[in-house]
């Protein structure tokens, strides 16, 4: 009986951690929307009447292809780079969730899943920083 009660508390805690992570993700998405709208307001008016060209692929400029490049450009107040910062935050959101899951499994002393989660985190960081 005592064991059953113990497992219920741990399940409850597990759920609380998951709930925290779920809310964190929602906050990230809301922050992204705010950043994207602010960036859009800064740069859209100046180009409203120009024609976009996406029919031929040329790729983004180098500054918009890396974490350091995007943040550096955004700090200069460039609206387009601020929008791209929002996109970067979206890519970071699931990575944050995985990072927090490492702590959740550590807290539960479930070391097998700490290792498995670190593998996923490593793959994601590889993609974002070196991909």
């Amino acid at each position: 009986m005592a064991q059953l009660a113990g497992s219920k508390t741990s399940e409850h805690r597990e759920h609380a951690i998951e709930q925290f992570i779920g809310n964190l993700l929602r906050v990230c998405v809301i922050a992204t929307v705010v950043i994207v709208v602010v960036g859009g307001i800064l740069f859209l008016p100046s180009i409203l009447w120009t024609a976009p060209s996406y029919s031929k692929f040329v790729g983004e400029p180098a500054a918009f292809r890396s974490v350091a490049g995007i943040l550096g450009q955004a700090l200069t107040g460039d609206g387009r780079a601020i929008v791209q910062t929002g996109m970067l935050l979206l890519v970071l959101t699931p990575i944050l969730r995985v990072a927090f899951s490492v702590f959740a499994f550590l807290y539960e002393k479930d070391y097998l899943y700490v290792v498995l989660t670190l593998v996923v985190l490593g793959l994601l960081m590889f993609s974002l920083l070196a991909g």
Partner: peptide, 15 residues
């Protein structure tokens, strides 16, 4: 997110 990182570096993601 795993493939988005690669595509960001390749210049596929336009703001």
């Amino acid at each position: 997110a795993a493939s988005a990182g690669v595509y960001l570096h390749r210049g596929y993601i336009d703001p």
